[in-house]
Amino acid sequence: MPHDYPLHTPLEARCLCCGSLQPFTFTADSDQVVCVHCRSHLGPEKAERRDLAHIALWSAISEAQAIAASEAEALAAADAAAAARSIAELEATVADLSATVIGQFDAAPASGVREQLQSDLVRRAERATELANRRTDRIMAVLWRLGVLHSAASGGSTCTCGKSITACPEYRILSSEQQVLREWEAKNVALAAAGSRHALPPEHPAVTDAAGSAPAATSATRHSTRPSRQERSGRFDRR
């Protein structure tokens, strides 16, 4: 009876005699799917011998599987114990680091870790503060722009958007934050005047005035440092 297994390839197939998985390497489609254990008892006259051989084979397979299962169980138990030890060590390390972070520096055994954590915490705090300040500056710049679009002259009753100040929700919201906006604007105007980094939007008068005065100042400086015609002639006269 031909089979469908690939040829010239080591594989495992179920023996048609004993029913167990056995190694085969077929060289032709007509090869019998009978393992080496069963080839010696093929034929109806060898039924008793075949049964005894099958029982012995199945017992050996069962014993081998039991041994493999026991070894796998022991290996799994050893791996679990090693993992438990690693987890315990990591938890102890985390506990030590946590104690260091919350300020129990004197009780921490590793001073090197303590100094490293201190510097790292300082860097993170400084970075977080810087990012928070930048976010605040961006929000305040947006509010300043809204204030330009929604403002009213002193004593006026109409918002620059065309609505009355009582009917303009943006004006009412911005009015409640005027003091904070003024303080933020004054601080950043001073920074811009000092040439420091500021958060004023490009269209703010302090920024546009500074940008417009820079070329004029440069031109004046160049003009003042250039010698006059009289000075140049005086130089030649001294020669």
Rank of each mutant, 00 (worst) to 15 (best):
P2S: 05
P2R: 02
P2Q: 03
P2F: 05
P2N: 05
H3W: 03
D4R: 07
Y5Q: 04
P6R: 10
P10A: 08
A13C: 09
C17F: 00
G19W: 02
L21G: 07
Q22N: 11
F26R: 01
T27C: 09
A28L: 07
Q32E: 04
V33D: 00
V33A: 01
V34K: 00
V34A: 01
V36C: 02
H37N: 00
S40C: 03
H41Q: 03
L42G: 03
L42Q: 05
L42P: 02
G43T: 01
P44C: 06
P44N: 09
E45P: 03
E45S: 08
A47R: 00
A47M: 02
R50E: 00
R50H: 01
D51A: 12
L52D: 10
I55N: 00
A56F: 01
L57W: 02
A60E: 03
A60Q: 06
S62D: 07
Q65T: 03
Q65C: 06
A66I: 01
A66L: 03
I67Y: 07
A69W: 06
E71R: 08
A72L: 09
A74T: 06
A74Y: 08
L75D: 09
A76M: 05
A76R: 04
A76T: 04
A77N: 04
A80G: 06
A81H: 05
A81E: 08
A82P: 07
R85I: 05
I87G: 15
A88E: 13
T93M: 14
T100P: 12
I102N: 10
G103P: 07
Q104S: 14
F105Y: 14
F105E: 09
D106M: 09
A107N: 13
A110E: 15
S111Y: 13
V113P: 04
R123F: 14
R124V: 14
A125N: 14
A125T: 15
A128W: 13
T129K: 15
L131D: 10
R134C: 12
M140A: 08
M140H: 07
V142A: 15
W144F: 08
V148A: 06
V148P: 02
L149W: 12
L149V: 13
A152G: 09
A152K: 04
S154W: 05
G155M: 08
S157I: 12
S157A: 10
C159I: 08
T166C: 14
T166R: 14
A167W: 15
C168E: 12
Y171R: 05
Y171A: 09
S175P: 02
S175C: 06
S176E: 14
E177C: 12
W184Y: 08
W184R: 05
W184A: 05
E185T: 08
A186H: 08
A186M: 11
V189P: 02
A190F: 09
A190P: 10
L191R: 11
A194D: 09
P201W: 04
P202V: 07
P205Y: 05
V207G: 04
D209P: 04
A211H: 06
A214T: 06
A217M: 04
S219T: 15
S219A: 15
T221L: 10
T221D: 11
R226A: 10
P227F: 10
S228Q: 10
R229V: 14
Q230G: 12
Q230C: 15
G234H: 15
R238A: 05
R238L: 09
